[in-house]
Amino acid sequence: MTSAEVTPSASDAGKPRSEMSRRIGRFRRNRLAVVGLIIVAIACLSALFAPVIAPYHYATLHQGQEFLPTGSPGHIMGTDILGRDVFSRVLYSLRTALFIAIVAELLSLVISFVVGLVAGYKGGKIDQWLMAGTDVMFAFPGYLFAVLLVAVLGRSTWAVILALTIASWVGLSRLLRAQILRLKSMEFVEAGRAMGATGWTLVMRYMVPGAMGPVLVSTSFGIPANMLAESGLAILGLGVAPPMPSVGTMINEGYRFVQSFPHLIGWPVVVFVLIMLAFTWVGDGVRDAFDVDES
C-alpha cells in the first residue's frame, strides 16, 4: 500500500469518469430514453408509496359498488366484481411486479457476477464445469422450474422471485464471462497487469467497470422480462397468492369481463404496457450510450 501504487490508478480513474459523463450525456440526448426513465421513476415511486397514494387497501370490498365504471366518484378507474378499487389494485400490483422484478434481477446479477467472473477469469476446469452447468440450465425448461418452486415453497413473493432468478441467471453469467474474456486481452487491462495489479484487484478495478455496459443493458431489459414472466406465472395460478393483486391476475380476471366491463382489463393493460415500453426505451438508451461508437 504505497502511494506510488495509488497514484497511477487515481489518475487513471479520471478517464472512466469522463467516459461515464460522456455516456450520461449521450443518454440524455435520447429523448425517448429520458421519457422512459421518467416513467420508470414515477412507476417506482408510486409503487414504493402505494400504501400512501392508494385511496383504498387492495382488498377492501365496497358492497353495493360493484362494477363501477371508470371515472366514478371515489374510484377514478372504477371497481371490480367485488367493489374493490381498480386504481388501488393497479398500484399495488405494480408494487408487487416491480419489487419481484427488481429483486429477482439483482439476485441474478449477484449470482451471475460470481459465476461469470470466476469462469471468465479463472478459466480451465472451473470454467468448463460452470459452463456445462449453464448448458443444462439452458436446456431445462424455465417454467417447469418456476412451477415446481412455487409448488414447493408455496405461492409467496419469494418463491416467485427465486423462480425468476433461477430462470435468468444463466444468460447473464455467460454474458459476463464473455465480457471478462474480452477484457482480459484488452490493452488497458494488460496495462494494469503490467503495473502490478493482480488477481481480484485486476478483476474488480479494471474488468468489472469495463463489463458494466453490457450488464446495465441486460439489466434494463431483464427487469421488464421479469415483469412479463411474473404476470405469466400469475395467469397460470403460480404467482403471488391472492388477494394481493398482480398484473397477471388482474388481466386474467379482467378478461372474463372484457365484453361487459372492459375497464377491468383496460387499466392494468395500459399501465403495464406503458411501463414495459418505458423500460425498453431506457434499455435502448443505455445500450446506445454504452455500445455505439460515435460516428
Binding site: T134, S168, G171, L175, A178, S218, F221, A225, G232
Partner: peptide, 24 residues
C-alpha cells in the same frame, strides 16, 4: 481468436437467453 477478440459462440448464447425469456 486473437484477431477477433470476442467469442462469437459465447455471444450467440447470450442472444438466446434474451429470446427465450419472452416465451413463458
Amino acid at each position: 481468436l486473437k484477431k477477433d477478440g470476442a467469442q462469437p459462440a459465447a455471444s450467440t448464447s447470450t442472444e438466446r437467453t434474451s429470446q427465450s425469456g419472452g416465451t413463458l
